[in-house]
Amino acid sequence: MTTTINMANPNTIWASVLVEALVRSGVTHFVISPGSRSTPLAIAAVEHPKTTTTVHFDERGAGYFALGYARANQCAAALICTSGTAVANYLPAIVEASQDFLPMVVLTADRPPETWNSGVNQTILQDGIYSHYTRLNRTLPVPGTHIPLAFLIEMVDRACDAMQNVENPGPVHLNCPFEKPLEPTGVTTDFAPWLLPIRSWLNNDVSLSQNTNRPVTDIDPLIVVQTAARLARATHGLLVFGRENDRKHAESYLKLARILKWPIWIDIQSPLRSSLTYSELPLLNADILSQSEVQNRWQPNVILQFGGPLTSQLALDYFTEVRPEIYLQVHPFTTPSMDPTRCVTNHIQTEGGKFAEALYQRLSDSEIAPSYFDSGWSTQTQNFQNQY
């Protein structure tokens, strides 16, 4: 057996298999908020040879730590907490992860179902507590040899598949009831027959269900040709870089920006924010957009946006008022929440960096109309460099 299983009792076996299944799906960092009911999960996470752990005593802070981990590493961390009100403290971070399509696994320990609605201390209804902000919510059965361990592995794999879904990735919730003993107290029962049906799984390192979800990367050549033609003709174009979690596309975005020479709005949550300077290209900010001179003399009729929604309410209000003839938004995921202004005329569902690179290659051989936002305007924007 290549997988190490804590054989002390059904709880430790169950938790060991659960953590192993998560590790095989790429979840290797666990953020633990100490508590009694979550003891089996915490021990399993700490004992696994391929995991790393962070201990955070406050569940709200732990949730935001996992959120930041997902942003920085483009992979999920798993949260572990005890039962009761501790569970509710994860909600703000889960909402943000959901809105930003960030992966996160939430493992909440729970008391057995017979204690629910009974007034027992630290017992609330935890099933579905995060509502529609999780991509999958399951309350697992209480560990016992009558429950096949293959069922547990399947549930974990389903959760990870939902978390990494191409169309709509985001957080998932597994509610985990445990009976006492919660600590790894040894018992005389032979649990080997319980593990026998998953022996082949234990002896390899793959998931029962192979996750085939991948980011949307295919680019329709016709869309590239049509989009490049629109951009080449535009004299009042604006490039917008919205909320995005991956920094690897910055160079492709910069190449496209330099060839178009359009003014640019960069959201505070865009990784491109630290990659451009005012000396290179005209960068817009709230001070510039609020000037009546700008509003009267220049309004974009074509907007090309990469990434998710913008943070600035001023920019959102401005785009709503201007309502350009063509507003293209490029993002791997397209849902109504990606367009709060309802101004987008075309959603292009693909990876932003590759689409920007394809546009750059196409435009390199094209005649591009000069931007109305000329060098004089560029000089004016430099005056706001210290305020941006």
Rank of each mutant, 00 (worst) to 15 (best):
W377Q: 03
Q361L: 14
S274F: 12
N211V: 04
E244W: 08
N346F: 08
Q210G: 06
V240D: 02
V55C: 09
N383M: 15
S16M: 02
H132K: 15
D339T: 12
N383I: 12
G352P: 02
F57R: 13
A159L: 12
P113Q: 11
L182V: 08
S118T: 14
L284M: 07
L182S: 04
T320S: 15
R243C: 10
I147A: 09
V142R: 07
A250I: 12
V216T: 13
I223M: 14
T277W: 04
G26S: 05
L91I: 14
F151E: 14
L152R: 10
H347G: 13
A232Y: 05
S83G: 09
N89C: 09
Y69H: 07
F355G: 02
V172E: 07
L283D: 02
R247I: 11
I80W: 00
H173Y: 12
E154R: 11
N285V: 00
P263D: 04
S279K: 11
N121Q: 09
T115R: 10
A369I: 00
T345Q: 09
G237N: 06
G35W: 00
I32Q: 08
T123A: 10
I348P: 02
N285A: 03
E357I: 09
K50Q: 10
L304N: 02
P143Q: 11
F319W: 08
A232G: 10
V344R: 10
L316S: 13
A70R: 10
S292T: 07
Q385V: 08
A15C: 04
W14H: 08
V344Y: 04
I303S: 01
W14V: 04
